[in-house]
Every structure is written in C-alpha cells, then in structure tokens.
C-alpha cells in the first residue's frame, strides 16, 4: 500500500529516512526504484528467482502473463510444486480485477515473498483506482465501503451487471473464490478499500469446514472509519503444507456458487405488488 501511494507522488517530492533494520529488504523489493529515487543503500542482490517477486507494476494482459511465468519457479524450489495452481489462480484473478475495474490509468502493484522456514507464500496486491464502492455502485445499491467489501466477496456480484450469472465477461466470482480458498486452507486473507477493511480469521479447531456465501458469516474482523484508501488492497498468505489440492478446492466451491446464483435469481424474480 505504501508503494502504491508513493507512485502517486512525484519523485522529487519524496524524502525518506530508513530507521528499520529491514530497510535493505525494501531496497531489494524495489520500493525506491519504483518511486524513482535513490535509497542510498548498496546491497548485494541475490538471485530472486524462486524466492520472491519484487514490487511489480501490472497494467496489461501481457504484463500479467509475464508475472505468472515468474511465479512458477517459487513452487519448483519449494517441496509443493502442485500448489502452483492455487497461487497462479489467486494472483491472476485478483490482479485481473484491478486491470478491469480499477479505472483508466490504474496499475496493479504486486509483490510475492516465499518464506521457506514457515513454508508460507505472502502475496500483496494494491491499486489506487476507483475502489470497490465506486465500482460496484454502477449496478448495485452500496451503502458504505464495508458493504462494498461484503458484496465484492459475495459470489455472483459484479460491477458490470446486476443479472444473476453475471455479464458475458464477468461472473463476480474472482474474489469469492480467492477468499474461499483462503478459508478452506485456514490461510490469512485481508482486503481494504475506502475506509473499511475485512480480515478473515483462522477458524476455531472444532468449526465445521464450510464455505458461506456471506463473507461476514466467516470468522472475521471488520472495521470502518479507517484512514481512507482510494483503491483496493488485498493480502493473502498461503501456507503450502496445509493447502488443499486445487481440484478438491474447486469441487467444494461448485455447490456454493450454484446455490448463490439460484438464490440471486429467486430474489430478482420476486416482484412486489404495485398499489395505486
């Protein structure tokens, strides 16, 4: 989010003072390069392939394809190459949302880090575009930024139509799939837009494994009235050891998606009598 914010500012207006020991990490992830400024640090750059993807701007389909190509080596180095499907899927869906919905001249900013000791992959995707509320309000009644987050995570709700089943180009399922994959795998998932945020919490041990249609039925925290973020930011951690096979995940999502669409159609078909 900091990186995306800095991109809105002219390089000469940015000043910095590094007080943290992890300052070299910001340099290696390409933060200062992205802002067009010198960090003043000189570090020996290690080969990034297989360990991380530095802050990367994605504006086009071609740039997204290149990013996805670079993700694959991370999994070949880990003991879990079969989890590449889940990761590739999540990055593709969330980043594509930005390219399609965030508005003209908006970039998605993506970075990925692999932590071999904890066998975790952390992904951050941020933009400074229209934000969820403005995007969804085109076709839905959205009362707040938090309501926009809830609707964005609801299967079948898209900013391109109010029809059940979505438009010819969008189903409104990308963020739902992503959040559900995190839910089933007990992974971290966080989304921030406008003045609101939603964070998925790890289910309690005796919780039944389920994929609710309403994201607020998941174990979560949410907050409103936060510092305003013009755009959307998503954070996901994937713990490779506990990640279910991608195909198993898809099978689990099928019934939920089908029922959500059916329910949406029923609601739209219900007409109230008109009295004059």
């Amino acid at each position: 989010m900091v990186a995306a914010l800095g991109m809105k500012v002219r390089s000469e207006k940015i000043s910095h003072k590094i007080i943290s020991k992890s300052g070299h990490y910001l340099e290696r992830m390409g933060l200062f390069r992205l802002w067009g400024i010198e960090s003043g640090m000189h570090i020996k750059a290690h080969e990034e392939s297989g360990k991380f993807i530095p802050l990367t701007i994605v504006r086009t389909e071609k740039e997204l394809s290149e990013l996805l190509e670079n993700i694959i080596p991370i999994f070949h180095l880990s003991e879990y190459p079969e989890q590449a499907d889940t990761m590739r899927y999540i990055i593709d869906e969330v980043t594509r949302n930005v390219i399609e919905h965030a508005g003209l001249d908006t970039n998605a900013l993506v970075c990925v880090q692999y932590y071999p000791r904890s066998k975790k992959i952390r992904i951050g995707i941020a933009d400074t575009g229209l934000g969820l509320r403005a995007t969804l309000s085109r076709h839905h009644h959205i009362s707040s930024h938090l309501h926009a987050i809830q609707q964005a995570l609801w299967p079948g709700i898209t900013g391109t139509t109010s029809k059940p089943g979505g438009s010819e180009q969008n189903a409104g399922a990308g963020l739902f799939f992503t959040k559900s994959m995190a839910r089933v795998n007990k992974d971290y998932f966080f989304i921030y837009s406008g003045d609101a945020m939603f964070k998925l919490l790890e289910p309690k041990e005796n919780d039944r494994l389920s994929i609710p249609v309403d994201p607020f039925a998941d174990r979560h925290t949410k907050e409103e009235g936060l510092p305003f973020w013009k755009g959307t930011a998503v954070g996901i951690d994937i713990t490779l050891e506990q990640t279910l096979q991608f195909r198993v995940l898809l099978n689990a999502l099928n019934d939920v998606m089908k029922e959500a669409t059916r329910e949406r159609r029923r609601k739209m078909e219900r007409r109230k009598p008109r009295f004059i």
Binding site: R96, G166, G174
Partner: peptide, 8 residues
C-alpha cells in the same frame, strides 16, 4: 489450467 473467469 484455466481460471473460472476465462471459462465464464
């Protein structure tokens, strides 16, 4: 592989 968005 394919995404749901693509198939949709």
């Amino acid at each position: 592989g394919a995404t749901q968005s693509f198939i949709h």
